[in-house]
């Protein structure tokens, strides 16, 4: 008897997976459209990725290789727990290597390593409605999507420029998918927005509490909204990663001591480790350690 005997494969029952797959297929057919689905209770609290876990559970098969990241890192609580969860309930192979994963469940980052055709990126989404903070009524926002009334989205960007002199939205930056639906790319930094554009990988978005699934099929146009005189631009960093000296990657600030010491390191831990294995060294990287005796 194996560990998985007490659960149905991948935790969810087959009827539920079927229902979620239908929602996913509809989402793929209408890129960027939020498809309602009957979200289930999962053995974790809302806000911890219940939507993403249900999507992953519905598409995962015994041959899949799963990678889970939380803010880019493979070794944080959320990532470790979800990886262990699927190892237990689906008995699938897990990895931290972006290139060899077939399904990557992510909380708020797109890996630095370019995704390839055949890979699926599953986003955990807290609030799927990009218009939510501008228009609180769901009935009204659904109508606005249906009638393509997106002037309000630019009101938000206008407010940014009026207050800060530039578009200060740095994450959950609204995008227009295939020239039709305005979509919230989940709270990924806007640094990752260009990676969504014409990505060869399938991108699925699951919001468990809000009970919505949406999708961006491979090679779909994803355009960040902006103004003609204030074009969209991504964050830039003054210095490379302190550990692997990578440039043009998204960096996290890490506090080192109580005296204001800090460093900027890759948010994508897998990318950073791979680079260090290849011999790249940042100015704060530890010396090469001797192999253990």
């Amino acid at each position: 008897m194996t560990d998985i005997a007490t659960y149905n494969f991948a935790y969810l029952d087959e009827q539920t997976k079927r229902m979620i797959r239908r929602a996913i297929l509809k989402g793929i057919a209408i890129p960027g459209y939020q498809v309602p689905f009957a979200s289930r209770e999962m053995p974790m609290p809302y806000g911890w990725g219940t939507g993403g876990v249900q999507v992953t559970a519905s598409i995962i098969g015994p041959d899949d290789v799963l990678k889970v990241i939380d803010q880019g890192a493979d070794d944080t609580t959320n990532a470790v727990s979800i990886r262990a969860f699927f190892k237990k309930v689906a008995n699938v192979a897990v990895t931290t290597d972006t290139a060899s994963a077939t399904i990557i469940q992510t909380r708020h980052r797109i890996p630095e390593h370019p995704l390839t055709a055949g890979q699926v990126l599953v986003y955990q989404v807290p609030i799927p409605e990009p218009l939510r903070f501008l228009e609180p009524r769901e009935t009204e926002t659904r109508k606005m999507h249906a009638l393509e009334e997106y002037g309000l989205m630019h009101v938000k960007l206008y407010e940014d420029i009026a207050r800060h002199g530039r578009i200060a939205t740095t994450y959950a930056y609204p995008v227009k998918v295939e020239g039709r639906y305005v979509m919230d790319p989940s709270p990924t930094p806007k640094f990752d927005n260009p990676k969504m554009h014409r990505s060869p990988a399938l991108q699925l978005f699951g919001a468990g509490r809000e009970k919505r699934i949406y999708a961006v099929p491979p090679f779909t146009e994803v355009v960040s909204l902006d103004f003609e005189d204030h074009p969209f631009e991504v964050q830039t960093f003054d210095q490379p990663c302190a550990l692997c000296a990578a440039e043009n990657v998204y960096l996290d600030e890490v506090i080192l001591d109580d005296h204001g010491g800090h460093m900027f390191v890759c948010s994508d831990t897998d990318h950073c480790e791979k680079r260090r294995e290849e011999g790249h060294r940042g100015h704060l990287a530890p010396e090469m350690t001797e192999p253990a005796q």
Binding site: V155, Y158, A162, D229
Partner: peptide
């Protein structure tokens, strides 16, 4: 933004 909303709604994209 209140005044500008209608302009943006009809497609004005120049801040």
């Amino acid at each position: 933004a209140n005044v500008g909303e209608r302009l943006m709604a009809v497609g004005d994209r120049h801040y």
